[in-house]
Design a protein around this nucleic acid. Structure first.
Length: 209
DNA sequence: GACCCGATTGTCT
DNA sequence: GACAATCGGGTCG
């Protein structure tokens, strides 16, 4: 599919395949690094390279919303096909995940940070700042910058208005403990956070394990 | 219905 | 480092 990301430079995007999303969750969490996350809206298009992810492994992961297979209206989409958007509200912000795993396996990958690529003026307006580094370096910030909302809940990442496409190949991937899940017992120490080593848009700099 | 809590962020000290 | 913002989800009843 051809899409024009901005008015300056036509840019051909190659959407990621269904098979791509069907990889094991931990593997997919790493493979998503470097991919382009794109959101179209009435205001325009904005996109960025994924530079930080976290895997949430479902029934056995105390930090996951689907811990012990908890199945509610909110978590329902987690039990479906891989490659679908799982959005939810965290305090005042909307966070976005990529549903992964087989059907009936409620696993997902939180997108924690992206590196701005296109639609930067639009992101600046939405974020009310022109500090490039502060535009998308956090899970709540990137959704605001891209215009991702609860309306995107359940949408496929393989067609507009929200898409994941081929991007760049990261030089080096680092891993460590996930962030913000201190009350999740032993799960808080699982090394399921992945980021592009040295990338300035990663949400927090933290020691690798 | 009441209560508690949270995969965050921005602001103030 | 502390804390408020702000509201839906989950639990208990």
């Amino acid at each position: 599919m051809d899409t024009f990301l901005n008015n300056e430079e036509p840019f051909q995007i190659r959407l990621k395949s269904k098979e791509f999303f069907q990889q094991p969750t931990i593997e997919l969490a790493k493979q998503l690094l470097g991919c382009l996350l794109i959101k179209e809206s009435l205001d325009g298009v904005a996109s960025g390279y994924i530079v930080e992810t976290e895997a949430y492994m479902g029934p056995e992961d105390k930090a996951a919303h689907s811990f012990q297979n908890r199945r509610t209206k909110r978590t329902e989409v987690l039990f479906g096909e891989a490659g679908i958007a799982y959005t939810y509200r965290m305090h005042t912000h909307c966070l976005v995940n990529v549903v992964s795993g087989e059907k009936e396996k409620p696993e997902a990958i939180l997108i924690r940070a992206i590196e701005p690529f296109s639609g930067i003026p639009l992101m600046e307006t939405r974020r009310k700042t022109t500090v490039l580094r502060n535009l998308t370096n956090g899970p709540g910030k990137l959704t605001k910058a891209l215009g991702i909302t609860m309306d995107d809940y359940g949408r496929s990442f393989q067609e507009p208005p929200i898409m994941i496409a081929e991007g760049v190949l990261p030089d080096e991937i680092a891993s460590g403990k996930r962030i913000g899940i201190e009350n999740s017992g032993e799960a808080k120490d699982y090394p399921w956070r992945f980021w592009v080593k040295g990338n300035p848009y990663v949400s927090r700099h933290q020691r690798e394990i």
